[in-house]
Simulated scan of single mutants.
Amino acid sequence: MYFDLTEDQKVIADTVGALLAKAVPDSEIVQQFDRGSVNRDLWSSLAEMGLCGILVSEEHGGIGMDLLTLAVVQEQLGQAAAPVPVAANALAAWLLSASGDATLRERWVAPLLAGEAIAAFAIEKNGQSDPEAWTQAPAALSGSLGNILWAAEADLLIVGCEGGELALIETTAAGVTVEPVEAVDRSQPLGHVRFDGAVATRIEGSTALATRLCDALFVLSAADACGAGNRAMDLAVEYATTRKQFDRLIGSFQGLKHQLANMKAEMEPVRYLYWYAAHCWDALPAKASYTASLAKAHASDVAVRVARAAVEAHGGIGYTWEYPLHIYLKRAMTARAIHGLPSIHRSRSAALAGW
């Protein structure tokens, strides 16, 4: 069997990559990271390309493609450590358009597609995103949820509620407090959300989509980790082929050659693993949850390990703030931690496989 991206997917990936390289060149990436907020100019450009509508049908204003296309885009965003919530908006728009809730669809899908509103998912409990663990009552949200991606910048929250249902609430609503979190990864701002009797709106028909939503988030997290890990590896290769020691390029030293080769051998299969997980979400739903958790666990573990090895390959400069390598390590660390650690996803995939 021959499995590859379509020409359209390759063009989209190349176009997004070129835009990111132009909008945030390597010389400015540390300054962008220091700001710790959404890059609004870049966000507008990506929204204008229609990326937030990849999963939404043309009937509802999107471009009607698939999760694999969105995941390929997310890899590019991870590779550039881009501070933009494309995945969050794309999935929120998909959820509202696919749920059949006409009222919420009319109110929110267009602003989400245009980038005029930002969505965040408050669906993690006890370190994992599992509809069976949700206990919130939409009519009276209470308690706190920490470390929610994009919450500090969000206009609306999608909240996981009892019975595997999803509900929507605006961040400005009564009883909702969002506090920015000083996160390790400033390219993806986090927020701490506190509910005090807040009233959310049930998303009609969302129960049937809750698991698919979580699986999509896992796949996109794997794609982001793949991008971050590959960029860290590329920086290590670039450094090894330009840095001299004892009048020799350090890349000619056998020990470093082995280290770089091991990094490549670990990273290369990651891309195809998340591709297959996205394909299953699109076309093989019986395998979607199993492959999503497998991809999330493996991709994030490998990306963190490779990024750490890349820091070691750089020596002292790899630890400095002014050199961008730490940004990709932190991006990979976020992908590893958010929506459940690898151990949780390995247990889930094993259970789904009947082990």
Score class of each variant (00 low, 15 high):
13 A>K: 10
14 D>G: 10
15 T>Y: 09
17 G>F: 00
17 G>W: 00
18 A>F: 00
19 L>A: 11
20 L>N: 10
21 A>R: 15
22 K>M: 05
22 K>L: 12
25 P>Y: 07
28 E>F: 11
30 V>N: 05
32 Q>R: 12
32 Q>V: 12
33 F>W: 14
41 D>A: 14
44 S>Y: 01
44 S>R: 15
45 S>Q: 15
47 A>Y: 01
49 M>I: 13
49 M>W: 04
54 I>E: 06
58 E>I: 06
59 E>P: 08
66 D>W: 03
69 T>G: 01
73 V>S: 08
75 E>A: 03
77 L>H: 10
79 Q>M: 11
80 A>S: 14
82 A>W: 05
85 P>H: 11
88 A>F: 09
88 A>E: 13
89 N>A: 06
96 L>P: 06
96 L>Y: 05
97 S>K: 07
99 S>P: 08
100 G>W: 09
101 D>H: 06
102 A>E: 15
111 P>M: 08
112 L>W: 04
113 L>Q: 10
114 A>P: 00
114 A>Q: 13
122 A>L: 04
126 N>C: 12
128 Q>I: 14
129 S>E: 09
130 D>C: 07
132 E>P: 03
134 W>A: 04
134 W>V: 03
138 P>D: 04
139 A>L: 12
147 N>H: 10
148 I>L: 11
157 L>D: 00
157 L>M: 06
160 G>E: 05
167 A>W: 02
170 E>I: 01
172 T>P: 02
172 T>A: 13
172 T>N: 02
178 V>N: 04
178 V>Y: 09
179 E>V: 15
181 V>D: 03
182 E>N: 11
183 A>C: 05
183 A>T: 12
184 V>N: 07
184 V>P: 00
188 Q>I: 14
193 V>H: 02
194 R>S: 15
199 V>Q: 13
203 I>K: 03
205 G>F: 06
206 S>G: 04
206 S>F: 04
212 R>F: 07
214 C>T: 12
215 D>W: 09
223 A>E: 08
224 D>N: 15
224 D>A: 11
227 G>C: 04
235 L>C: 01
240 A>Q: 08
241 T>A: 00
243 R>G: 00
243 R>P: 04
250 I>E: 01
250 I>T: 00
253 F>S: 02
255 G>W: 08
255 G>C: 01
255 G>D: 11
256 L>T: 10
256 L>M: 09
257 K>A: 07
259 Q>P: 00
260 L>Q: 02
260 L>C: 07
263 M>V: 02
265 A>S: 13
268 E>C: 01
272 Y>D: 14
272 Y>A: 11
273 L>S: 12
274 Y>D: 07
278 A>L: 02
282 D>R: 11
283 A>V: 12
284 L>G: 00
285 P>C: 02
289 S>V: 05
294 L>H: 08
307 A>L: 06
308 R>N: 12
310 A>F: 02
310 A>H: 09
312 E>H: 03
312 E>S: 07
313 A>W: 07
315 G>K: 03
317 I>L: 08
317 I>T: 15
318 G>K: 11
325 L>G: 08
329 L>F: 12
329 L>T: 04
331 R>E: 14
335 A>R: 10
336 R>P: 02
337 A>W: 07
339 H>N: 15
340 G>Y: 09
341 L>K: 15
341 L>V: 15
347 S>D: 14
347 S>E: 15
348 R>M: 03
353 A>G: 12
